[in-house]
Design a protein around this nucleic acid. Structure first.
Lengths: 252, 252
DNA sequence: CGGCTTCTTGATCTCGATCAATCAGCGTGG
DNA sequence: CCACGCTGATTGATCGAGATCAAGAAGCCG
């Protein structure tokens, strides 16, 4: 028994090294060569895995670190005043959590594990210093934040112009792409979030999410069984995701 | 005549120095002391003023620089596929334009002047190098991007949960705050954007914007005449902006 | 003053929220 | 092993906020 624990410990620490991490081509240190990678690796802190429903941190807690998702997934939830929560983001492996906390020195939302999840903690003051010495790291940090800004703008477009159908389709296509990039099947995956989470994120009622998934299924765009999703016709789904009004056939 | 031009030129260049700029306490170099400020100032490039409707840059053009607004205002518009434009941001003096272009090395939307507008061009490669030498500058850049992320999340909440009334109220309150911070009256200002722009930004039809502004006026929350706005009851307006459902009286 | 665009106002219609039952999954304890 | 209860998901019926359609009114500039 102690043997197993030690093994597990060793394997975890090994996994936890950036050099051997399977996500290194997607993660923050992606632009680093070996000497720099070692330096970066040295500031990373291991965390014990989060169980489903556990919080990585709570809203308004002082900002100290960024977190790179290693496995599993999380959601970011902001509670404003006494109103309902707003789910502002889902995080998948290799993605960087906490960037929106830098400015006010506290996290603007709670981040909750949707399943068993492991993360790498990156103390921000150390990262900032290191980004002074390693221009590639600094550049990667700027690019990561910039990309998140771009994604946010896309989300605003989704929320302000798209129909419920287009939102669901966009959501599925986006998940599919993100899984593909991470080496998983873009056609078959398991949703780690509930229908309520999806609805909250997309600005739709749970019932609407359910109904539309059902319709997509009848249209043989997808096969959905509980949280298991099979995408049957990614092209059509993509077309639904950003189709225009029926009478604007785009350029011809 | 040449004398006047020379005067104007000199005065513009003088104005254009960060050290003497009235926005220095809000703008990017806000954390810098004098020797560093000079270095920063040295990489800034002057631009001739943009006329109303002129583009600072167009969508998909290669990213080279950030721009700090000196006077006037701009809107950022993204055209996706063949669909309608999405207005994703308004920029006021001291705000930084172009941060979402870093990642893909091109600007993800066109930025258009809403009135006569002057900006400071900040070549990004120079800024990046300088941010290596000046930690305060780097920190300010991180904070600025982080703040924009937070603002985006707030906007998502607005778009996915708020009613048309709440959106308009939030918009007016937010403008009021931004003007106050810049030393202008938070109660009286001129909208530089059209109703159509406001509607596009808030995810509402022009007609709805018009109707609700009218209703706010009947409720003596504001007095609106064309683009001239007087806020008569900022408290009530703020309350409208983030009131909950009628039957959740918040904490008591 | 006429020809624009922008803004306002009114009438109607529609998408998706809301309300209201089920239904399915699933861990818990008898 | 199965009844029980709980949470999450589905399905149906109704309703309403805001979009859309359709005129006008008011600026604005040559």
């Amino acid at each position: 028994m102690p043997d197993t624990t030690a093994d597990k410990q060793r394997s975890m620490l090994n996994e936890a090294r950036c050099q051997t991490c399977s996500l290194s081509s997607l993660c923050l240190p992606l632009a680093l060569e070996f000497p720099d990678m070692d330096q970066f690796d040295a500031i990373i802190r291991r965390r014990t895995p989060l169980k489903k429903g556990e919080a990585l941190f709570l809203q308004d807690v002082p900002f100290t670190s960024l977190y790179a998702v290693r496995s599993g997934s999380l959601k970011q939830v902001t509670t404003e005043g006494c109103g309902e929560d707003q789910l502002t983001n889902f995080y998948l492996p290799s993605e960087l959590v906490g960037l929106d906390g830098i400015d006010e020195a506290r996290y603007p939302g709670s981040v909750i594990a949707l399943e068993t999840t492991t993360v790498c903690e990156i103390p921000f003051d150390r990262l900032d210093s290191l980004s002074q010495e390693i221009p590639e790291l600094r550049g990667q940090l700027f690019r990561t934040m910039s990309k998140e800004l771009r994604d946010d703008r896309r989300m605003m477009r989704l929320l302000s112009r798209k129909t419920a159908d287009q939102r669901l389709a966009s959501f599925l296509v986006s998940l599919s792409e993100r899984f593909r990039r991470r080496g998983y099947s873009p056609y078959s995956f398991r949703l780690s979030m509930s229908r309520a989470d999806i609805g909250n994120y997309l600005g739709l009622a749970v019932e609407t999410v359910s109904r539309i998934l059902n319709r997509f299924q009848r249209q043989t765009l997808v096969a959905v069984s509980g949280r298991e999703v099979h995408i049957l016709d990614l092209d059509s789904l993509s077309r639904v995701a950003d189709e225009q009004g029926v009478d604007s056939p785009c350029a011809h």
